[in-house]
């Protein structure tokens, strides 16, 4: 009987295609990035090995650090501002009886749309002269704001768009967790006379802590990957103030013919992502298990 499931031919046949694709299209680029990252290469002429020169350059390149900072803004915005809103909305939806399904369906809509199209749509909303937002603010006498072209508002404009796209997605995740809490636990609390607010903070939030951590982790991973939205909305402008690491990498490699440097940045994105997610997981690991 065990023999059937020890058929090596089937095993190989079932694994090989995956492993081949995986090695070719994920493994190779990673290896190549590590190779070219240590060279001076303009993409046209043969690469010349230059040791850690690219990384030295990156660490003194203020534009690169600006792009790192923008990735960090992405993380901070999603955790400090977006997350409380997400939890709040999820709690609200979980507590209403009517329209529950409607709310859930509606908030999710932006998450299924293409980031590129959302970028275009919001570019339209941020348009200083005819855009929706300025027209709306003008009703309250607010003066024209140049959302995407002023360096003081460009980044926050992108962050808001990003939040608009993904808030509903996370709401649905957390909502599922809240609705998954066994009824008797909540009923018990009600008998004990807990108010809605108490019920939320004292009982529900601790119970859904694992999923909140997942949402935070996803936000961090998403923030480190941010690329489409920036490229479509500002291409990193005005003057590079909204560049994230990935857009900076593309510009260095494709526009300035610094392929060696571009690959070095690819490696840095890789390392930073590992370090940040690793640190986060390590710091939340200790008391993760909550039984109910």
């Amino acid at each position: 009987m065990n023999k059937t499931l020890k058929n090596p031919i089937v095993y190989i046949l079932f694994l090989l295609p995956t492993i081949l694709l995986y090695c070719l299209f994920m493994g190779m680029p990673v290896i190549q990035a590590f190779y070219y990252g240590f060279t001076d290469w303009d993409g046209l002429n043969p690469p010349i090995f230059n040791g850690i020169e690219n990384f030295r350059e990156a660490f003194t390149d203020s534009d690169f650090w600006l792009s790192v900072l923008n990735n960090i803004y992405f993380i901070l915005f999603s955790i400090v501002i977006q997350l409380p809103i997400i939890i709040f909305l999820s709690l609200l939806i979980s507590q209403v009886k009517r329209f529950k399904a409607f709310y859930k369906t509606a908030v999710f809509i932006p998450s299924i749309l293409s980031t590129a199209v959302i970028g275009i749509l919001w570019g339209f909303i941020y348009e200083p002269d005819s855009g929706l937002l300025n027209q709306f603010l003008a009703l309250f006498g607010v003066e024209k704001i140049y959302w995407l072209s002023d360096k003081s508002t460009a980044m926050i404009s992108i962050l808001i768009t990003n939040a608009w796209q993904w808030t509903g997605f996370y709401v649905v995740l957390i909502l599922a967790a809240i609705l998954g809490i066994p009824k008797d636990l909540l009923e018990q609390a009600e008998i004990d006379g807990a108010t809605n607010w108490n019920k939320s903070t004292r009982i529900i939030i601790p119970l859904i802590r694992p999923i909140i951590i997942v949402v935070m982790l996803l936000s961090i991973a998403g923030a480190m990957k941010a690329l489409d939205i920036v490229w479509v909305m500002t291409e990193g402008g005005p003057f590079g103030t909204t560049d994230v690491m990935a857009t900076y990498m593309i510009k260095e490699a494709f526009r300035e013919y610094q392929y060696g440097y571009g690959n070095a940045i690819a490696i840095l994105i890789f390392i930073f992502t590992l370090v940040i997610t690793g640190l986060f997981q390590w710091s939340t690991k200790n008391n993760e298990r909550i039984e109910y």
Partner: peptide
Amino acid sequence: YFKRGSLGL
């Protein structure tokens, strides 16, 4: 002297 917000146009 330039249109404001020109960097976004």
